[in-house]
Design a protein around this nucleic acid. Structure first.
Lengths: 256, 256
DNA sequence: TGAATAGTGTCTTTAAGACAGTATATC
DNA sequence: GATATACTGTCTTAAAGACACTATTCA
């Protein structure tokens, strides 16, 4: 079953009411951490990308579907981190309904289900923003990456949702390895070093970092090097998939 | 606004549909870790205690209200840890409706909203089970504490929800101190030692445990002792509230 | 040979882990 | 003085942290 954009107006019965999934899609590349935001035509406000849950799909399937429809990437590693359900999470239905009617050419009433109060199931994911082809939706005025440290004013409690996502990511990082979904199959030490520095927002001594990473057993140093530019070629490393998956399953303590 | 038990039949419009809060209420006392479960009259199945979200309350308020109505305790420290939203979380509405009608004397139809598919917002909390006066609901056949390592067969995915709650608790313990809500104002080292051992399911050398706990700065040793029985009186300790709250806010690493 | 970046090793300090005998309260 | 429980200290081992010079590639 496909869920298309106008279904939310034409077929409300296909969805669970009052529930949405919101994805904090974080993008990393070259020492920059960004978040994908959408700007709704109706309100002109920026918000996290999100969508609704079809009656025929699990919340995880919904989160994946919504995230894919934005990024074009399948099988993102979505991590649920919290739900937000304050009572004031709804805004100006009348204006929004009028705007939507104009945009879609379909009559939208102000008591349409999507203008009711919603509980948001929040997920985050981490991807390489340089590989993503953003797909703007027809009801979006804009959809683009913003640096996590320099965000525009956001709708409702979305600023808080992003903060919490980052907090969760930083906490997860201590228990579960990251990088598999983000780095190429083979990567250099400076690459993974920069990744950890950027996400955790601090610096690490390169020698101590390497020692710790190798002693965890989740990466293996290869004998190959990667030729990049007029300087010494860095060695390549790869994740030790078995240990990596085991760490994802059982947790490991890897506090940098 | 009060939400009473029969409201769910008589005033469906007071609630958000398809959403429930489920509380994994963990109880600790004297080296035992238990969980509070309810047995519904209609199905005879055991399940986590839970309830619905009123339109006039936030999901946190709902979780608190529901938890208080079971334990009589206000201001439990509820921690949201995950949401569960598979498609098969609904069961035999016809039978359940018939059972409920018989029990309440109110006509209950099989398409009543509570028999639809639900997304469960799961919380856990930790309390001292010896201080709790359980309040059985009229639709419960039973409601009591079960040892976490010896549970009865549970409804749907509730076994998994409890496992995840324990996993979250054990992960949280590494980042945030626990015990404030659980131990008396002043407590002994053996008491907090046993608490950590029970929750984490392993033993800790008492000397090393003390060293680590004190060096974290969240507890202070007092000069008073507590007279308990025909043997040496243990010293009392208290939490250093300022450091404790700061640790709750910013996290601390306290891996035992 | 200069510019740019990567690589590597040692010492010091701190924390973790293992381990057992002494002290106190009550009957 | 017997019983029950609490208290405490040291040594060893492992991990963290601080620190700077050498190596390679290419233009």
């Amino acid at each position: 079953m496909a869920y298309t954009e106008l279904d939310i107006i034409r077929h409300p019965e296909s969805y669970l009411p009052n529930i949405q999934v919101d994805n904090v899609i974080l993008g990393y590349h070259d020492k920059e951490l960004k978040v994908l935001l959408q700007q709704t035509v109706a309100t002109k406000k920026w918000s996290i990308t999100g969508g609704y849950v079809g009656r025929a799909e699990s919340i995880e399937e919904a989160a994946n579907r919504v995230a894919s429809s934005r990024t074009g990437l399948e099988n993102l590693f979505l991590q649920q981190f919290r739900s937000f359900g304050g009572v004031n999470r709804s805004e100006d239905p009348e204006k929004n309904a009028a705007n939507m009617s104009k945009l879609t050419g379909v009559e939208v009433k102000k008591d349409l289900w999507i203008f009711d109060r919603f509980v948001s199931l929040a997920y985050y994911t981490l991807t390489d923003f340089s590989t993503v082809k953003i797909k703007k939706w027809s009801l979006d005025a804009d959809c683009r990456w913003w640096p996590v440290n320099d965000l525009p004013p956001l709708m409702f409690d979305h600023q808080q949702i992003i903060s919490e996502a980052l907090k969760s990511l930083r906490m997860h990082i201590a228990f579960y390895p990251i990088g598999y979904e983000l780095l190429s199959d083979k990567f250099t030490l400076p690459e993974i070093h920069a990744l950890y520095e950027t996400i955790l927002g601090r610096t690490f001594d390169e020698r101590n970092f390497q020692r710790k990473l190798l002693s965890s057993g989740i990466v293996t140093k290869l004998t190959e090097t990667k030729r990049i530019g007029p300087h010494r070629a860095p060695f390549l490393y790869k994740f030790n998939k078995v240990q990596y998956d085991q760490a994802l399953e059982n947790g490991l303590v890897l506090i940098f």
